[in-house]
Amino acid sequence: MADSSTPPAPSVRPAVAADGPVLGELDRSTWSTLHSVQPRPQPPYAPFFDDRHLPRDILVAEAADEAGEQVVAGYIRVVPPTPLACNAHVRQIQGLAVAGWARGRGIGRALIRAACGAARADGANRITLRVLGHNAPARALYASEGFTVEGVLRDEFFLGGRYVDDVLMGRPLAP
């Protein structure tokens, strides 16, 4: 039994279209060259969901905020890496964000575990991702969840005045 100072575990659910505005705000508030190769978003902001980013591809974590209200604390996007039938057994994490106030509370870990479970339920037997080499916290989290480095594209991006590696990670999805 958790003591009263331990926040309850986050809940994870599929996204719905109505989550778009709060997920867009989460994306903008967490933007950093630590994890993004895209330029900082500028107004007018594009919708979070579009033809390539659908609610069905997103899992949302909810947790109690400072006021004790259950609110969106993070999300993860998991999709087939290509439309090819020859790698339909693979899913790829193509986005993970956790609100600043929710960091250190197991939100990212819960999202990764839920994503692996959803990918397995969808028939996948492998999951992959790409992470920037200088993002040590994310790399450590992925490694602790069984992801291993499968390749490194050296100096693939120039961010914040320096070259950054693109690290390819993956893991099997055992039943």
Rank of each mutant, 00 (worst) to 15 (best):
D3Q: 00
P7E: 01
V12N: 04
R13S: 04
V16F: 08
A17C: 05
D19P: 11
D19H: 03
G20E: 09
P21D: 11
P21E: 07
P21G: 08
V22G: 04
V22D: 10
L23N: 09
G24Q: 14
D27S: 11
L34H: 02
L34C: 05
V37R: 04
V37K: 04
Q38I: 11
P39S: 03
P41Y: 06
P43E: 13
P43N: 07
P44H: 01
P44A: 09
A46F: 05
F49Q: 01
D51A: 10
L54I: 02
L54Q: 09
P55Y: 03
D57E: 09
D57I: 00
I58L: 06
E62K: 10
E62P: 07
A64C: 10
D65T: 08
D65C: 02
A67H: 10
E69C: 11
E69P: 02
V71T: 13
V71P: 03
V71K: 06
V71H: 04
V72W: 11
A73E: 10
Y75R: 00
Y75M: 13
I76G: 04
P81N: 06
P83D: 14
L84Y: 15
C86F: 14
N87K: 12
R91C: 13
R91F: 14
Q92R: 13
Q92E: 15
G95S: 02
A97S: 15
V98M: 07
V98C: 09
W101V: 05
A102I: 09
A102Q: 12
R103W: 05
G104W: 07
G106T: 04
G108W: 02
G108F: 05
A110I: 03
A110S: 02
I112L: 15
R113W: 01
A114L: 01
A118M: 09
A119Q: 04
R120T: 13
D122S: 15
G123T: 10
N125H: 13
T128Q: 15
T128L: 12
L129Q: 07
R130Q: 15
R130S: 15
G133H: 02
N135S: 01
N135Y: 00
P137T: 08
P137E: 03
P137S: 11
A138Y: 00
A138M: 05
A138R: 02
A138W: 01
A140Q: 11
A140Y: 01
A140F: 02
L141C: 03
Y142N: 10
Y142Q: 09
A143D: 00
A143C: 08
E145Y: 06
G146E: 06
T148R: 08
T148W: 07
D155R: 06
F157M: 08
F158T: 08
L159R: 06
G161Q: 01
R162H: 12
L168N: 05
R171Y: 00
P172T: 14
P172S: 13
A174H: 12
A174M: 11
A174L: 15
A174P: 12
P175I: 07
